[in-house]
């Protein structure tokens, strides 16, 4: 039926405005207004240490930002982090989803164990990894390496970004697993039976039936994960504090440092605008997806 349910009550319009207004106002006040203010501050010469010396600065903050090598390091680290974590979590998540899509003894329990890391608070993740797993002397990883006759690795100082990638991937592979597994289970069994009767082997079955079916779900996983990876903070805060040097400083951490340690509102606002732009490049694809979903759904 193409008629919208609006017609459900002749003679009366639903008070849609009044019902939506609180949510809209709330998001305006807490998200959109501050975003506009960030944009405004980014053109101000404003340092909290010298609150009286405030004034219009034009593009000065952006100039400073673009000439700051740390900003470029942060940008590069952010992109590296997002790309590596995406690759690891999606590939591992897909492999695990296939593994857990079989019927076997205690599947429910094994799966519940596997997805548990997703529910762990990121700060705690950071601490567990920093101390109990990656500590060069007392960490579990070092013990394992020593036991098999290898030299223990100074994970956080020698491979800082890799260490952060490991932590984030540990947290988010379960997410990919959970969602892709649900996607796999929504695959109609008769499609698989049909393709098996057509003589497909397992790889062909995966390539031509399973993967296309997962397309939309994979898309959602990738987009959502990128949004979260772009804003990774707690894992870095709790472990490396952006170091050593700038090795693990990503954009959020860079902004945090310039705002709360250099008190430079202009510079950190300019960097924040940069982060917003970056996030939007990713988000635009997801929004388009959501909007498409909406249109498809409204023709029910």
């Amino acid at each position: 039926m193409s008629a919208s349910p609006t017609d459900a009550s002749p003679g009366k319009r639903a008070p849609t405005k009044r019902l939506m207004a609180p949510s809209v106002l709330f998001l305006l006040v807490w998200m959109i207004v501050p975003l506009a203010m960030t944009l405004y501050y980014s053109f101000q010469d404003y340092n909290l240490m010298m609150p009286d010396m405030r004034g219009f600065a034009g593009g000065l903050s952006y100039e400073l930002l673009f000439t700051d090598p740390v900003f470029w390091d942060a940008l590069l680290n952010t992109l590296l982090l997002v790309a590596t974590c995406l690759l690891v979590t999606v590939v591992a998540g897909l492999a695990l989803a296939l593994l857990f899509n079989r019927t076997f003894v205690g599947r429910g329990i094994a799966r519940t164990l596997a997805i548990s890391p997703f529910f762990v608070m990121p700060v705690v993740t950071g601490l567990i990894w920093k101390y109990m797993l990656l500590d060069p002397v007392y960490g579990l990883f070092s013990w394992v390496m020593r036991s098999i006759g290898l030299e223990p690795v100074q994970w956080l100082s020698s491979y800082p970004l890799l260490s952060v990638v490991m932590m984030i991937s540990w947290e988010w592979t379960p997410f990919a697993l959970l969602i892709l597994l649900t996607g796999l289970q929504s695959l109609p069994e008769d499609q698989l039976e049909a393709v098996r009767l057509d003589g497909a082997n397992r790889w062909q079955e995966f390539r031509h039936i399973v993967l296309p079916h997962l397309g939309q779900v994979l898309y959602v996983v990738i987009m959502l994960e990128s949004i979260f990876f772009l804003t990774s903070f707690a894992e870095i805060y709790a472990t490396t504090s952006g170091g050593p040097g700038t090795a693990t400083t990503n954009l959020p951490y860079y902004i945090y440092l310039s705002a709360f340690f250099q008190y430079d509102i202009g510079l950190s606002s300019a960097a924040a605008i940069g982060a917003v732009v970056l996030a939007n490049i990713f988000a635009i694809f997801l929004i388009r997806f959501v909007a498409g979903n909406l249109n498809a759904g409204s023709q029910r």
């Binding site: 998001l27 998200m31 975003l35 203010m37």
Partner: peptide, 12 residues
């Protein structure tokens, strides 16, 4: 709006 990163509104 979910995709405005928190750092984007942190300062204001």
């Amino acid at each position: 709006t979910k995709f405005i990163p928190a750092v984007g509104v942190l300062i204001p």
